[in-house]
C-alpha cells in the first residue's frame, strides 16, 4: 500500500477509453505524491468534475467520440483556471502540439514513452514548468517565434476607428473570403458600390489590396479565426 502525502498532486483523467483510464489509474495510484481524484470519458462529465474537484493536473487524451477535442481545452481551463493540462497522445503531428499549447496545454507526453516520463511530466507541470518532447522543441519554438498571436497595434486600432459601420461589415466579409459579387449580394448593394467602399477602406487602413485587407481583418479581430473552419 502506498502512503499518500498530505500535499499529493491531485489529478483527474479525461479519456473516453475505460481501459486506458484503468492503466493510468494504476500508475498514478502507485505514486506517493499523487492522488487520482476523478476521471471522465466525455466533455460534459469532465467540466462537471473539474469545477467540482478542482484538480491540480488534468491528464487529457483527445478523442472525438467523447467530445474531448482540441476545441474543448479552453472550456476545461475555464472550468478551473488553476488546473494544468497535460496532453497524453499518440500523435506526432507538430501542428497538433502547437495548437494544443496555444489552447493552454502545458505539457505533451507521447503514449509511446515510458510511464516514468509521464510521472516526471506531471511533477514538472505541477511545479509550474512546461513539458514537451525533446524532438518537438525546435518545431514548437519555430512556431512560437513565427506565429505570434495577433495583437492590434495602436495604428491598427486607430484605423478601425476611422471605418464606418458599413465599411466594417465589408472588411468582415472580405475576412470571410467573399468576393465582390458575393459581398454585393450579401449587402444588397451593387458591385460597383462595393468597389467604391473598398477603395475608401484601403486608404483608411493603409493596405494595398484585398489579401492585405483580409490579413488586417484577422489581425484586428474583425474576423475571428477561432470560429471559422475552412
Amino acid at each position: 500500500m502506498v502512503k499518500e502525502s498530505k500535499d499529493a498532486i491531485r489529478i483527474i483523467l479525461l479519456d473516453n477509453l475505460t481501459m486506458v483510464r484503468a492503466g493510468l489509474r494504476l500508475l498514478i495510484e502507485s505514486q506517493a505524491d499523487m492522488k487520482l481524484v476523478g476521471e471522465a470519458g466525455d466533455l460534459h462529465e469532465a467540466l462537471h468534475i473539474i469545477a467540482d474537484l478542482k484538480p491540480d493536473i488534468i491528464l487529457l487524451e483527445l478523442s472525438q467520440n467523447g467530445n474531448l477535442e482540441l476545441e474543448a481545452i479552453p472550456q476545461l481551463i475555464h472550468a478551473n483556471g488553476k488546473s494544468r493540462i497535460i496532453l497524453v497522445t499518440s500523435s506526432t503531428d507538430p501542428c497538433l502540439y502547437h495548437q494544443a499549447m496555444q489552447c493552454g496545454v502545458l505539457g505533451v507526453v507521447l503514449k509511446t514513452q515510458k510511464p516514468e516520463v509521464l510521472l516526471k511530466a506531471i511533477r514538472k507541470v505541477y511545479e509550474g514548468e512546461a513539458w514537451v518532447e525533446r524532438s518537438m522543441v525546435a518545431s514548437l519554438l519555430t512556431n512560437i517565434t513565427r506565429n505570434q498571436p495577433a495583437i492590434p497595434t495602436h495604428l491598427e486600432t486607430e484605423c478601425i476607428a476611422h471605418l464606418n459601420q458599413r465599411e466594417k461589415e465589408i472588411v468582415c466579409l472580405i475576412g470571410n473570403g467573399l468576393n465582390t459579387k458575393q459581398i454585393a449580394s450579401q449587402l444588397f448593394i451593387s458591385e460597383s458600390t462595393v468597389r467604391h467602399y473598398l477603395t475608401s477602406i484601403y486608404e483608411k487602413v493603409n493596405v494595398s489590396g484585398r489579401l492585405e485587407l483580409l490579413i488586417f481583418a484577422y489581425r484586428v479581430g474583425l474576423v475571428n479565426l477561432a470560429h471559422l473552419t475552412p
Binding site: N176, G177, N179, Q186, L214, V223, H227, P230
Partner: peptide, 15 residues
C-alpha cells in the same frame, strides 16, 4: 488555399 467562410453559407472561397 481554402478560406473559411464562417457562418456565411455562400460556398467556399479560395485564394
Amino acid at each position: 488555399i481554402a478560406l473559411p467562410t464562417g457562418s456565411l453559407k455562400l460556398g467556399s472561397s479560395k485564394l
